[in-house]
Structures are given as C-alpha cells and as structure tokens.
Nucleic acid binder design. Sequence first.
DNA 1: CAAACATTGTTGTCAATGACAACATCGACT
DNA 2: AGTCGATGTTGTCATTGACAACAATGTTTG
Lengths: 207, 207
Amino acid sequence: MADADSPYHHGNLREALLARAEVVLATSGADSLSLRALARDLGVSHAAPGRHFRDRQALLDALAVGGFTRLNEGLRAAVDEPGPVTARLAGMGRAYVAFAVANAPLLSLMFTVKHADDSSAELRELGHQSLRIAAGLIALAQREGVVRAGEPDRLAQVAFSTVHGLAALAVGSLLEDTPLSEATDLALDVLLTGLAAPGGDAARPGA
Amino acid sequence: MADADSPYHHGNLREALLARAEVVLATSGADSLSLRALARDLGVSHAAPGRHFRDRQALLDALAVGGFTRLNEGLRAAVDEPGPVTARLAGMGRAYVAFAVANAPLLSLMFTVKHADDSSAELRELGHQSLRIAAGLIALAQREGVVRAGEPDRLAQVAFSTVHGLAALAVGSLLEDTPLSEATDLALDVLLTGLAAPGGDAARPGA
DNA sequence: CAAACATTGTTGTCAATGACAACATCGACT
DNA sequence: AGTCGATGTTGTCATTGACAACAATGTTTG
C-alpha cells in the first residue's frame, strides 16, 4: 500500500518463497525457517505464504521435492557419462556424496519422515527413482559380467546405503581428519569390490 | 502449594525430564518436544526445566549423549560376543541397524549438527568412540588375516557408512518391500566381501 | 544454633511463531 | 458491468522459549 512499486499481487510468490527458503535452509538450517520471516524477506504480509503452502511442513516438503529432483538429475547425468560401467558406478557414488555434503540440511529434509501424507507419497516415489537409476546401472554392469548376480534393486539399496551413510558421517564431523575424497575413494573401492562378480576380476575402480 | 503430596522440590527433575523426553521423542519426534509440555507432564512449573537445561537444545544434546552411550554399550557387547571375528563384525552391524531403526528420532539427534559448542565436543567424542570400537574389531580381523590391509580407522568409517546408510533407507521407507533383515544380510555380505583380504578366502559371513 | 548461601522451583512477562478467520484487491470470463 | 476465484492483507489467538524477580529448601559455616 505504501510503496508504489509493490503491486498488490506479488506475481510469483510461490517460487520466490521456495528460492528464499532454500537459501535460509542452506544457511541456517530447517529449524530457523520461519514462514513469517520468509514473508518479511519478500516484503509480503505474514499470512501470504499460507496461500501457497498449507502449513510450514508443506513448504519443507516442497523443498524436499526440489532436492530429489535435482539429485536425480545429477545421478542420471552420471549414468550417461562415457566410460566403463564400473567407472560410471563410482562416478554416481561421488555425485551422490557431493550433492549430499553440499546440501546437508536439504538432504535431511528429503529423508525425514514427518511429511504430510500426500507429499509423503510423492517423496517416496522420488526416492525410489533415485534407487532405480542406480539399479539400472547395476543391471548393466551385471550384463557385462562385472557385478555379482542378484536383484539389481537390492544391490542398489546396498550401494545407496554406503554413499548415503558416508555423507552422513562427513556432515556429522565423524571423519576426523580423513579428507572426504579419500574416504569416498575407499568406500567406493570396498563397495565395488564387494559387488564384483566372484569369478571375473571385478568391478574394482582402480583399474 | 495446592497438593500436599507435591513437595516444593521435585527431587529428581533432571532425570525425570530426560526420561519423559525420550518417550515423547520416540513417540512424536523431536519437533514435538516442548519444554513446557514436559513440565506439564511432570507437574512442575513451565520454567522449571530451565534450571536443568539452559535451553531446548541443551535437552536435545543430553538426549543425544544418552543415545550414544547406549549405542556404544551395544556395540561393545557385540565385540565381546563369542565366535569368529567375521561373525562378530556382522553382529556389530546388525546391532547398529537394530539400534538405529528402533531409535530413529534419537539417532537423528545424535548425528545432527546444531549442538551447542560444548556438547558438540562431547558428542563428537562419543561418535568417535563408536568408530573406534568398530576399528578395534577390524584390526583384530586384520591380524587374523581375514580383512584387507589398511588403516582400521578408515575401514571402520566405511563399515559404519554402510550400516548407518542402510538404517537411514529403512527409516525413510525406501526399502520398498524388502524385509530389513534381508537388506541387512545383503549389505553385510557385500561389505564384508569388500573388506576381505584379497588372498585369503575372506570375511564372507556365509560360512 | 543461626545466618548466609547455593540450588531448585514458581509466577509473571515478552517477543516470535503458526494457524486461522474475515476482508480487500485483482484478473479472467461471462 | 458483474461475478468469481486466486492471491494478499489485517487482526487475532494459543503455544512456545527465554528471561527476570521472587520463594522455598537444603547446606555450609561462623
């Protein structure tokens, strides 16, 4: 009302809220994310965010959806990389760890369980997509004879566990003075060795 | 003042708060943990918790400390189990996963970064203890020639990553319909295979 | 024993927040 | 023009964390 340059309708408030929320999330963590503060930052009234997000959790869920979307893009990019399968598997692992440590608070939103029932379904589906991307590459590796037999989906769960857990340790400052890149290399070596086909000389990435 | 059976001093308020907080945490999650609600539950005034915990975060940190303490007890118990080293390694992995899924919200407090600086040091130390316990068993396995050479601390980080990540997937409902026990068995098989000494026929748990 | 003192609990208060209701403005479509 | 839905606004409420001032209790010490 006061400023002439502020029209009654923002025009793109939903996107603006998400964008600003991502910054705050990355900077100060999810606990510091307040709808009212976001509204202030964007120069709208304290209740305006309510038009776009039913409640605070709905905003957080939307952020998590965005996170999964970006993550999955990254994973797909790693799959499409040129080179031998095992190198691409390792690359996917590195991509995951990189995303995770670069977006720690977001990742924790993505894997946290308290989503509303509707977003919950969407988020689970997106998470399963991540796993399926990994499973696809693993299936390919199996056809090439470098990865052991077994349900690709289940092997993908194992691979995912390794990199996800590693990221968690890194974020939690539990790697002591081990550089993350070295910890990642070792984890991927152990993982790919464990996944290697028993006969074939394996998925070892060192080669 | 009203009730004759409520003395002015509670007598054990700190412990009572922690006990009640654990229940609420496990039941409704960390976000639902309110100091005032705890005070109500215990029949004390809304400011009483402030005498024992500087702020809400201090309470959460204390819970996390308790969690690590119990976790480490469990891990140590797995180490002291009778049987071959590889079986004990697998047992430790299973113990971790069991603890993690049975105490998911607590675990997330334990690994979350926003602790006050003082508790932060204590919590990091407790986390490192967990890793050291695993490293000890791995070092033993190396002396027996069933685990590959390398810094036990770093191999422990890898092992930890696997089980921690697996627990995260399980809690996040990302295992689809895979039973957790099967996913755990597979993960431990892959992990121990990957950790096995190259020559020796290995730490495979199947034996 | 009495008198300081530290500990622990109580009441009172404040600002911040999420949620909701009632109303205002704007654009689109008839 | 007139209606209507979408989007913003103001107003309000209960809950909460944090703090300050005060009260009761136990402990130490002169």
